[in-house]
């Protein structure tokens, strides 16, 4: 199989995924109607589809560890952030979920999936067994959304104070950097299935022979993806927080200081 063939064919992820996406879209439409922010929502759905129904998914299914990491980045960082952004201005969490929105908890929930789903047994299981994969996807989306809540909640008062938000995001960056460094710099093998690919032989040979990506390099790229781009996402979010913080006062009309005016 050539690369072009592969990228042309490896689309589609079974019937469940489109159904789920359609269902989610319907719910979103019913819930928000005219207030819906379609660009963000559609982008979120698009990212989920890209993660789960594209060649990335085909590669992540046991052929390429780094593709599986891209999937994680999409599901844990990109899609939930876009989902929160798609919520119209006054949306709040239901009262019952209020406890869940404590920043210490959301932070832990946001950083934990990367560690937990890279426990070797779980990582292998999620790659090989669709049911566990489904659990993984849902948990990542949900925990990702909770993680972003203190930063991207639609109502300003649900969010952390921006400077604390900076600390929140910086700490999250350290959390995944640590794991990224371990994956990159040590010979640890968190997903053994990727050493002897369980993916269809054609895909496996595409990766190893045509692209020449060794298991070693693959693992390193996976670690680096968690280390560098993931942190860059957090850094970008930190800059957004700072923009918000500095931007706050611009909402007020410029007034002259009373003492000075006198």
């Amino acid at each position: 199989m050539s690369s072009a063939q592969f990228f042309a064919q490896a689309w589609g992820g079974g019937p469940v995924l489109p159904a789920a996406c359609a269902g989610a879209t319907l719910v979103y439409w019913l819930r928000f109607r005219r207030r819906a922010r379609w660009p963000y929502f559609l982008a979120a759905v698009g990212v989920v589809l890209l993660a789960l129904a594209s060649p990335i998914a085909a590669l992540a299914a046991g052929a390429l560890f780094s593709a599986h990491m891209v999937q994680h980045l999409f599901l844990l960082l990109a899609a939930p952030a876009l989902l929160l952004l798609s919520l119209p201005g006054e949306t709040t969490l239901p009262r019952s979920a209020g406890v869940l929105s404590h920043p210490l908890l959301t932070w832990s929930l946001g950083v934990a999936p990367m560690w937990i789903w890279h426990v070797p047994a779980l990582c292998d299981a999620a790659t090989v067994r669709p049911s566990i994969k489904a659990v993984q996807v849902v948990s990542m989306l949900a925990m990702g959304a909770l993680f972003w809540w203190p930063i991207l909640a639609p109502r300003a008062r649900d969010r952390l104070q921006p400077l604390l938000g900076v600390v929140y995001l910086f700490a999250a960056c350290l959390g995944c950097t640590a794991l990224g460094m371990i994956l990159t710099l040590t010979p640890v093998e968190v997903c053994t299935v990727f050493r002897n690919p369980v993916a269809p032989a054609a895909t496996a040979s595409l990766v190893r022979d045509t692209w020449g990506v060794s298991a070693e390099t693959d693992r390193q790229i996976g670690g680096l993806l968690m280390w560098v781009p993931m942190c860059l996402v957090y850094v970008a979010a930190i800059l957004v927080e700072l923009r918000r913080w500095f931007g706050d006062h611009e909402l007020e009309p410029a007034r002259i200081a009373p003492e000075v005016r006198r």
């Binding site: 910086f170 960056c173 950097t177 560098v228 942190c231 860059l232 850094v235 930190i238 800059l239």
Partner: peptide, 17 residues
């Protein structure tokens, strides 16, 4: 001012990575 201030934070963060 804001850009100079924020870019300092960006530099500080990137410096660790």
């Amino acid at each position: 001012y804001e850009f100079v201030a924020a870019s300092s934070v960006a530099i500080a963060l990137l410096s660790f990575g």
